[in-house]
C-alpha cells in the first residue's frame, strides 16, 4: 500500500504546481515508511521539504502555506505524535474557511500512520481517529487497500478543505495489489460495500477490514451471509449506505481497532439507532479495542480485535435475533 501512497503523491505533484509535501524525513529518506520515496529527487527540495522536528510547526506552516494558495500534503510520522499539532488543526485548520467566510481556506492533507500490529515502540501504534472526527470542518479518511489508498488520497489532495488521512500501518507492506496509475480519484464522504450479504452488516475501516473480510468468509460455513462495509470516510459518515444495508440485513456489527468508548463505532451505532431501529432484528454489537492504553507489542494482538472475536460477535447477534 505504501507504494500506492507514494504514487498518488507523485501524480498530484506532477499535475498540480500548487501541491507541496512537508514533514519529518520526507525528503532524502522518503519517509520512515517510504510513503514519499523518490519524490524529493524528482520534484526538488522546495516542493518536497523536510521540516524541523516540530509537529505543531508542520500543521501551522501548512495552514500558512494553504491560506496563501498552496496545497500542502503534510506527514505526521505516527498518529501518536499528532497531539502537539492538534491546537493548529482544531483552532485554525478546521475553521479558517468558516471564520473568514470563505476568503481564506486550508486545502491541506494531514497524512499519518494509524493503528498497531507492526511491533512498533510505545506511542507508535495509536488509533485515535475519534479525536479528529469530533472536530467540525475536518474530513477524516482511512483507506483499507492500496487501490483505495491511491484513489482516496488523490481525492483528499484535490478537496478544497482539510482532510485527515489515516494510513493503516500494518497494511503499508502487508496489503499488496496492482494499482493503475491513472490519476482517478475515488469519492470522498462515501462508504464502500466490499462484500454483499443478506444476514448481517459488518461495518469496519482501515486495517480491521482484513480481519472483517476473513471473518465473513469463515461465517459462510456457519450459514451466515455477511455484508461488509468499508466506512472509509470516518467523518462525515455515509449514513445512507449503512442504513440501506441494515434495512436489508436487519443486523449490525461494528469492528474498530480503536478503544470502544466514544469511538467512531458508537456514532455508527447511534445513526442506526436513530434512523434504522425498526429494521433491526437484533441488538447492535461492537467489536473494539479495549478502553485501555494501547499495549506494548507483546500484547498488541490481544488488543486488536481478532477474527475470532468478530465471528463470535456475529454469531451472538444471529442467536439474539427476534
Amino acid at each position: 500500500m505504501v507504494e500506492a501512497v507514494a504514487m498518488a503523491h507523485a501524480w498530484e505533484l506532477q499535475h498540480d504546481p500548487a501541491v507541496v509535501v512537508i514533514g519529518e524525513d520526507v525528503g532524502a529518506n522518503g519517509g520512515v515508511f517510504r510513503a514519499t520515496q523518490g519524490l524529493q529527487q524528482r520534484f526538488g527540495a522546495e516542493r518536497v521539504q523536510d521540516t524541523p522536528l516540530a509537529e505543531a510547526a508542520i500543521a501551522g506552516v501548512a495552514i500558512g502555506m494553504a491560506a496563501q494558495g498552496l496545497k500542502p500534503i503534510a506527514e505526521i510520522q505516527f498518529m501518536g505524535f499528532l497531539y502537539p499539532a492538534l491546537d493548529q488543526i482544531i483552532n485554525h485548520m478546521s475553521r479558517m474557511r468558516h471564520r473568514t467566510r470563505g476568503r481564506l481556506s486550508c486545502p491541506i492533507v494531514m497524512r499519518m500512520p494509524h493503528g498497531g500490529g507492526i511491533h512498533a515502540p510505545e506511542h507508535h501504534s495509536e488509533s485515535v481517529e475519534t479525536l479528529l472526527c469530533h472536530v467540525p470542518g475536518l474530513r477524516v479518511v482511512c483507506p483499507s487497500s492500496p487501490a483505495r489508498a491511491y484513489g482516496l488520497l488523490l481525492a483528499a489532495i484535490r478537496d478544497p478543505d482539510p482532510v485527515m488521512f489515516l494510513e493503516p500501518t500494518r497494511l503499508y507492506r502487508a496489503s499488496r495489489q496492482e494499482v493503475p496509475d491513472d490519476g482517478r480519484a475515488l469519492p470522498l464522504d462515501r462508504a464502500f460495500v466490499l462484500r454483499e450479504g443478506a444476514d448481517v452488516t459488518i461495518v469496519s475501516w482501515g486495517a480491521m477490514i482484513a480481519e472483517t473480510l476473513q471473518a465473513a468468509a469463515e461465517l459462510v460455513a456457519a450459514g451466515v451471509d455477511a455484508e461488509v462495509i468499508d466506512l472509509a470516510s470516518l467523518s462525515p459518515i455515509d449514513a445512507t449506505t449503512i442504513l440501506d444495508s441494515v434495512a436489508k440485513t436487519g443486523r449490525l456489527v461494528i469492528v474498530q481497532e480503536a478503544a470502544r468508548n466514544v469511538g467512531v463505532g458508537a456514532e455508527v451505532a447511534a445513526i442506526v439507532a436513530e434512523d434504522g431501529l425498526y429494521d433491526l432484528l437484533a441488538p447492535i454489537r461492537r467489536v473494539a479495542g479495549y478502553d485501555t492504553v494501547m499495549p506494548l507489542y507483546r500484547l498488541e494482538r490481544e488488543y486488536i480485535p481478532s477474527v475470532r472475536r468478530i465471528v463470535d460477535a456475529v454469531r451472538a447477534v444471529m442467536v439474539d435475533s427476534r
Binding site: V20, E46, G60, G64, A67, Q68, Q88, H92, L104
Partner: peptide, 27 residues
C-alpha cells in the same frame, strides 16, 4: 484579502506567517 484573521489562540499565528513566507519563497 490575504491577511490572516484575528488570532485568539496565543502565538499560533506566528506559524501561519511562517507558512505564508514559505509559500512566497517557493513561488
Amino acid at each position: 484579502r490575504a491577511d490572516f484573521p484575528w488570532c485568539v489562540p496565543i502565538a499560533t499565528q506566528t506559524l501561519h506567517a511562517t507558512g505564508a513566507a514559505m509559500a512566497f519563497k517557493i513561488r
